[in-house]
Amino acid sequence: MSYYPKLAESFSELFASVANDRVLVLGHARPDGDCIGSQLALTRLLRAEGVDAVAYNADPVPEALSFLLGDVGIEKFSREALDGSSLIFVDCADEARIGPKSSKLICGENFLGNIDHHISNTNYAHFNLVESDSAATCEILAGLAFDFGWEVDPVTAQCLLTGIMTDTGRYSYAATSSRVFDLSARLVECGARPVNTAQALYENEPLCRLELLQRFLATLRTESDGKVGTGKLLHKDFLDTGAKYEHTEGFVDYTRSLRGVKVGVYFEERESTVKGSFRAETADYRVDTLAREFGGGGHACAAAFSTDESIEDIEPRVLAAVAERIGKVESDPGE
């Protein structure tokens, strides 16, 4: 059985291109499970095939995902890391996703590979292995590894399974397919343990995260006749609780979980920027295009953006855009 026959030629050519190169495996800033899992898994797979590969990220590995770090780590990205290396991006819809400072450093470099599952991907590399029907970049990497007969050791399998588990919402999102379950079963056969991911991510909460969640839940409200759910955190909330930005992972899902809500929006005020996240009931609402209006991107049902505008300015504009989108979808559901 072949999981990704349409990507086979591009992947083969990509691998042939890096055989004698030093490769930097880059992931997006503020990395999540799929990003970290993809970076570590691809680095490990390439090294096992004799390729000189190193993973870099603008931000540190979140504490909850540090259990994935074996004998391969993820280093802090810097100009010195480039040194004429070829770049392979994972889980990045565009090159800017690696972070504002990092993206400036890579101008003019060799954008060799782009492996991703975002519908908003801009196909910015020489080899673009983009499959928007996949639930996770780790799903694509797992499928390609098995298609090419590469050995997947237990640590690599754990990285891939974690990326799949997190980006499918523990196998509950719409993109969760029979292929996802088949690949997950094969990864378990390779030595991955779902319980390890579950305990590390969902049964190991620091108190500061729950204190932050308490503050966030207190802001939840609905608008547009209950069809828009929204909540926010201010920079002061992080200072008061001692929580980190990584501790808000999954908070946006509460905005969409409210009964009757079609699109949920979460606002996060940081020291000098505001991050916005969207979650939609169905792909009809195309929140990836909504996010693009504010400089972001993502998936049809899950997307995000970051802006230098104040939360007071951006919040009403975003909520108005969401209400307009819902109105258009409901007035012409077949559009």
Rank of each mutant, 00 (worst) to 15 (best):
A192F: 14
L239K: 15
H299T: 08
E249H: 04
E269G: 11
H247Q: 08
A198H: 13
A218K: 14
R256Q: 06
D253G: 05
Y245Q: 12
L217S: 08
L213F: 13
T282K: 03
S272K: 09
F278Q: 03
A303S: 11
T219G: 06
Y266C: 09
Y245H: 14
C190S: 14
A303C: 03
E293Q: 15
A291V: 07
S224R: 12
E211C: 05
V287W: 02
P194V: 01
C301V: 12
E293H: 15
E249P: 15
L213M: 10
T255Q: 05
D237R: 06
L212W: 02
K244S: 15
G231S: 08
V274F: 07
T230V: 11
A198S: 12
V263G: 02
L217N: 13
H247M: 10
R259F: 13
G191L: 10
E211Y: 08
P206S: 05
H235A: 11
E246L: 05
D237G: 04
E211G: 03
T248P: 07
L201T: 09
R270P: 00
Y266G: 00
F278I: 06
F294I: 11
A304E: 09
R270L: 13
R279S: 00
G296K: 04
V274D: 00
A218G: 13
G191Q: 11
Y254T: 02
A218T: 05
E189F: 14
G231L: 05
V263H: 01
R215W: 04
A283G: 02
Q199V: 13
A303D: 06
N204P: 05
L233H: 01
T255P: 11
A283R: 07
G295M: 03
D253A: 08
T222Q: 09
T248I: 14
L213V: 02
E269A: 13
Y266N: 15
H235S: 08
R193L: 10
F294K: 04
A304F: 07
L212S: 00
T230I: 09
G260A: 15
R292K: 15
L290C: 09
H235I: 06
T241P: 10
A192Q: 03
K262C: 12
R221S: 11
F216Q: 03
T248D: 04
F278L: 06
L212R: 05
E211R: 12
T222F: 13
G295Y: 05
D253N: 10
Q199D: 12
R292Q: 13
G297M: 12
T282A: 04
D253F: 07
L207I: 13
V265C: 14
D237P: 02
T197V: 14
E189R: 15
D253K: 06
H247W: 03
A283E: 08
S277K: 04
A192P: 05
L220K: 07
S272L: 15
